[in-house]
C-alpha cells in the first residue's frame, strides 16, 4: 500500500446474525481512497453505506477481508487502539449534529482537544481558528439551542476538524438542512478539503449532495457496483 492511500479495503465482508441466518451487509468490497479525496458512498437505504463508514471509522470490525486506515489494520485493533485512532485521526459528522446541549459552541468544539490532552492556550487557539474557519466566532458563547440547523451543523464540522484529522466521515450531513444551508455546508467542506487536504468520505443518497462529490462509489446490496471519479 502506498502512503497516498488513506483507506484500503480488500475483500471486505461484513455479516450480522439475523435470527437463524447471517445477513450480509458488505460483500467483497475493494476500494482505495487516497489522501485529500472528496468522495461519497451512495446508494439506497440498506445498501451498506453506513456499515462501511462504521468499519472505516473503526467503530466496527470486518467479518472477513481487511480494512486499513492510515496504515492501521482495523480488524486487529483493540478497543483502546481503535478509540485512539478515532481520537487522533478521524472526525465524525452526523445527520443530527449531536452537539452537547449544556456546553457552549466553544466548549463543544474544544471537547476533542481535551481528550487529546492539549494545553489551555493551545486549545483556545485551535478552537478559535476552527470557529473562524466556519464563520462562527461570534457564536462561540452560545448554546446549541440558540443556533439554527445550519449553524449547528457548522459547529459539528468545527468539532470534527478542530484536531485537523486526516479523515472526516460524514453520514447524511445535510439530511436535516434546507437547500441553502446544505449548499453552504458542502461548500465549507469543499474549502476544508481543498485548503487542509482533509479527506472526506460521505454516506448519502441525496442527489444534490452527490453533485459536490469528486468521486462517487455506488453501493447496492453491500457490493460496490460503480466507482467513478469526476
Amino acid at each position: 500500500m502506498t502512503a497516498a492511500k488513506l483507506i484500503h479495503t480488500h475483500d471486505l465482508v461484513k455479516t450480522y446474525p439475523v435470527a437463524d441466518r447471517e445477513f450480509i451487509a458488505l460483500k467483497n468490497v475493494n476500494i482505495d481512497i487516497g489522501k485529500g479525496e472528496f468522495a461519497g458512498l451512495v446508494g439506497p437505504s440498506g445498501s451498506g453505506k453506513t456499515t462501511l463508514l462504521n468499519v472505516i471509522g473503526s467503530l466496527d470490525i470486518p467479518t472477513s477481508g481487511s480494512v486499513s486506515v492510515l496504515d492501521h489494520n482495523i480488524g486487529a485493533l483493540s478497543h483502546k487502539q481503535a478509540a485512539k485512532l478515532r481520537n487522533h485521526h478521524i472526525g465524525f459528522i452526523f445527520q443530527t449534529y449531536n452537539l452537547l446541549p449544556v456546553y457552549t459552541v466553544f466548549e463543544n468544539v474544544e471537547f476533542p482537544l481535551l481528550l487529546l490532552g492539549k494545553g489551555t492556550e493551545e486549545r483556545k487557539k485551535m478552537v478559535m481558528d476552527a470557529l473562524d474557519w466556519l464563520g462562527l466566532t461570534e457564536k462561540a458563547e452560545m448554546r446549541p439551542a440558540q443556533l439554527s440547523g445550519g449553524e449547528s451543523q457548522r459547529v459539528a464540522i468545527a468539532r470534527a476538524m478542530v484536531k485537523k484529522p486526516a479523515l472526516i466521515l460524514a453520514d447524511e450531513p445535510t439530511a436535516n438542512l434546507d437547500a441553502k444551508n446544505s449548499h453552504h455546508i458542502l461548500k465549507t467542506m469543499e474549502k476544508l478539503n481543498a485548503e487542509l487536504e482533509t479527506t472526506f468520505l460521505f454516506a448519502t443518497h441525496d442527489e444534490k449532495v452527490m453533485q459536490y462529490m469528486k468521486r462517487i462509489i455506488s453501493l447496492e446490496d453491500g457490493e460496490v457496483v460503480k466507482d467513478e471519479t469526476k
Binding site: 467503530l59 478509540a83 485512539k84 481520537n87 472526525g91 481528550l115
Partner: peptide
C-alpha cells in the same frame, strides 16, 4: 455515544 465516536475510551 458521541464521546465514544470521537475517540474517548470506555
Amino acid at each position: 455515544g458521541l464521546r465514544l465516536a470521537v475517540g474517548e475510551e470506555k
